[in-house]
Write a protein that binds this DNA or RNA. Structure first.
Lengths: 138, 138
DNA sequence: TCCTACAATGGACATTGTCCAAGTCAAGCA
DNA sequence: TGCTTGACTTGGACAATGTCCATTGTAGGA
């Protein structure tokens, strides 16, 4: 479970109670939390942790490549600890639920040179939108 | 040029000076403006137009399907008047420039049923990220 | 021309995120 | 173990973007 903490320690990350708590929150199986949700869960474990620290720590985890930022809607960014397997997202238009999905094919290959306008294209994000079974049934 | 205005009128949209100005701003060839940029350009033509009206009008145009909302970065949403031809976006990671692109293939078809988790999937957004020629040359 | 429903206004408020100066502490070292 | 130091945390102010609402204005039909 604490692979994440191990990796961070191995990289010389200075370990503090605050950072440990943030990493633990993300390391659970509750994925795709907003920064505020991360903060709320962190506060439950360490009441005096500040919002600024949560933002800082999330930013560092993103820089280290341990966590992905996901901006599927106009609301808050979400943080996805599943950074080590390429995947895309499937979002419910009604309740906002997010699932990781693994489509076939390579969307990068679908962009011909004639459509690149001289850009060096290095990444692609795909967001599928629809209605989840819960919302469709209601 | 005023196809957009014509269509809106044809749909029974109540035409006001404010709405006309917003539609005209979007109908130009300067695409992918933020709400604030739209407001700034609208103010240039009609100084007393309010921010709330610009937001309202943009929201209505989106609802009518005449304009697309594009959220390519964590900053403001952008509004894309090119709503009538399906396309995706190519974004420069450095300067934020956006180009419309038309990749081959249909990304929706790349998502097998086994990866749909019971969702009714209705749309897909693809954002290519890279570095534009200007930024790469600098 | 007059009415009336719909639209615009503008300012308060909400949400999300960033910044900074001051205080605190983890970790290396003697 | 007990210092030292520089990195980390704090909390609150601030910024950017967007929403809401009561009031005022007006487009378009009768």
């Amino acid at each position: 479970m604490s692979d994440l903490l191990e990796r961070l320690r191995g990289r010389g990350w200075r370990m503090t109670a605050q950072r440990r708590v943030v990493a633990e929150v993300l390391d659970g199986d509750h994925v795709h939390l907003t920064a505020d949700e991360v903060h709320a869960r962190a506060v439950a474990k360490l009441p005096e942790i500040s919002r600024a620290t949560v933002y800082n720590t999330l930013g560092e985890l993103v820089s280290l490549g341990e966590v992905l930022e996901v901006a599927t809607d106009r609301r808050a960014k979400r943080y996805d600890p599943n950074a080590h397997r390429p995947h895309q997202h499937l979002v419910c238009a009604q309740c906002g639920a997010i699932r990781d999905v693994h489509p076939a094919g390579n969307p990068l290959a679908d962009l011909p040179d004639s459509e690149r306008f001289g850009f060096v294209v290095s990444a692609v994000e795909v967001t599928y939108r629809g209605v989840c079974p819960n919302c469709a049934g209601a």
